[in-house]
Amino acid sequence: MKIAILSGKGGTGKTTLSVNLFSFLKKATLIDTDVEEPNSHLFLKGYDLLEEGVYKKHPVVDDEACDYCGACGNFCNFNAIIPAKKKVLVFQDLCHDCGGCKLVCESGAISYKDKEVGKLYHSTIAKNKKFIYGNLNVGEVSGVRIIESLKEISKNEEILLIDSPPGTSCSTVAAIEGVDYCIICAEPTPFGLSDMRMVVELLRAQKQNFGVVVNKSNLGNDDIYQYLDEENIELLEKIKFDREFASILAEGKILINHSEYFRNKMKNIVKKVMGDNCDQ
């Protein structure tokens, strides 16, 4: 079973939920797909560390062979390749590696070159517990390639948790693609609710099954509960805000090892989402 944890708004508790659900399960793999700002690794100390590069191609133009017809520039949706007077400009960071410019080039002037866009970090946390996270290189525009690599590597995992990026952009869509269930980690503030609505819209458009965990449930207001009720969305669990939790998290510790309350919350969520699917 593949489960994505996402939020819309940042800072609602995706990573807290992800690493604690992961720690609660006896057998699971966790991937952190928030490659622009990965942070699950701050909580998970593993061994057998392995690092690998993720590469993206970008066009290289042979100015001698080019006849400056302009087809590549007209084709590119991202303005990554712009034919000028005597040379063709390539903006590597704008390129989405679709391969289109080479297809439309009739003079055969375009070839491709690899560029590292980020890295994957593999580790083993315990027996039957694998953790992989991706990190996008500074200056790169899109982390989708890295997220796709993470998804590809983990596609055969029996129990997979996906710590997803915030928002509803391409990165989030890539992270949740092909999962069996999505857990929205929301907070009961106007901002939290507003961003969650966008996630709900996204998940409905993608025909995903999902439920909501309201984190910091003793803060904010009750609008979120009314919304869940009106929209007929399952409320999986409510988790209170507690300064003690914040301080445990700030030390990089796993909450379920320090709070029976939190451990029970994870247990309920796992039960509701996975049913008999898992061995705890």
């Binding site: 520039g73 990554a80 400009l89």
Partner: peptide
Amino acid sequence: GSGAGGKAVKVLG
């Protein structure tokens, strides 16, 4: 969405 600078210059060029 991206690369407005390059595109604007191309149009003007």
